[in-house]
Simulated assay, not measured.
Amino acid sequence: MNARPETGEVCDLRFGQVGIASVRVRRADAAALYEELERRVRAAPQLFARAAVVLDLSHFLDLPDEGTVDALLEAVRSAGMLPVGLAYGTSATEALARRMGLPLIAKFRAAYEPAQPHRDDNTPAQAPAAPAPAPPAPSVMEAGLGAQYHDGTVRSGQQIYARDRDLVVVGAVANGAEIIADGSIHVYGSLRGRAMAGAQGDTAARIHVSDFRAELVAIAGHYRVFEQIPEDLAGHAVQCRLDGEKLLLTRL
């Protein structure tokens, strides 16, 4: 089994579709995966305990065998998360999911490999065409949708999702509340819960908060969990944005 060069972490954990996180495995080491995920669940149980996750095997040049994948799924379960299937990938990933009886969480499955055209024996063989790239998701501006507004407090346990648009909250976001947008998020009040912008992968999305006290902020899957808010951010107006793979938080 071949994989790309190893890094320090066993996996990448990112938010994707609303309510589902993706665990992209970097090493087929079930024990190490358990230790890393269990540490993350312990650090932020409100966020990760019993979270629905998909297992992403796209880091591997050759897919692990079924026994190894079973062990990885059990590691996710033992850490306190709930695996719901495999992430989309090539036809080999789909075949593996079928053999194991697992759901395949796919958005642009057909874009990864071209269909093989039918030809009869008298038709000369041709080199297969390169797969067409997946169409880009429309931006909030391209979709022509205005921002979604919420007036008043977002209470603990409540979730608000702005699909294909920005979200503007005029009020507080309580501890244990969750606000999500495919575009940017603007909170004109105190953010004590969780805010996730760019939920479908928009890396240009931003989060603006007038009173920053968040449990978690995330943009396009890149997140930061706060056990204690840094003194230079607590209670201040803050902007969150991505710089490459790094999530930056600065005072306004």
Rank of each mutant, 00 (worst) to 15 (best):
L55R: 02
H208M: 09
A44L: 03
S78C: 03
T203L: 08
A115S: 12
P103L: 00
L233P: 05
L247V: 09
S139R: 09
H150P: 11
R241H: 11
D29H: 01
I20R: 02
L86C: 05
V225K: 02
A49Q: 13
L55V: 08
A177N: 10
A220G: 14
E227S: 15
T93L: 08
P131D: 08
V18R: 01
A132D: 12
R206A: 08
V187L: 04
L104C: 02
P5N: 01
L61A: 14
V53Y: 05
R241A: 10
Q116N: 13
D65R: 13
R99H: 11
A218H: 04
R109W: 12
A44T: 09
G89M: 06
R99K: 13
R251Q: 15
A115C: 06
N122T: 15
L96Y: 06
K107T: 10
H222W: 07
C240T: 02
T203Q: 04
R77P: 08
R163K: 15
V170A: 13
S22D: 07
C240F: 09
A195Y: 05
A147Y: 07
H118Y: 14
D151L: 14
D232C: 05
M100D: 02
V10E: 04
F212A: 05
A181W: 00
P114I: 04
R194A: 04
A237L: 03
A199R: 03
R26V: 09
A43Y: 10
F226E: 10
A115Y: 07
G193E: 01
S78K: 13
L96V: 11
I160H: 02
T153M: 07
I229V: 14
L167E: 04
D202I: 04
D120C: 14
L13R: 06
R4C: 07
G19L: 01
A92Q: 15
A44D: 09
Q46C: 14
F15T: 08
H118G: 12
L13S: 04
G85H: 02
Q158E: 15
A106C: 12
M81Q: 05
A97T: 10
A130T: 11
A21S: 03
P131Y: 02
H222R: 15
L86P: 07
L61I: 13
R98F: 10
A111H: 03
A162R: 03
L96T: 06
F108M: 15
L73F: 02
I179M: 00
P136T: 01
S184P: 04
A234D: 12
A237T: 10
A132M: 12
E36L: 03
M81E: 06
A205S: 06
R192K: 13
A172V: 13
I207N: 00
L47V: 14
H222S: 08
M141L: 10
P136Y: 01
G235P: 12
A174R: 03
R26A: 07
D166L: 09
D65N: 15
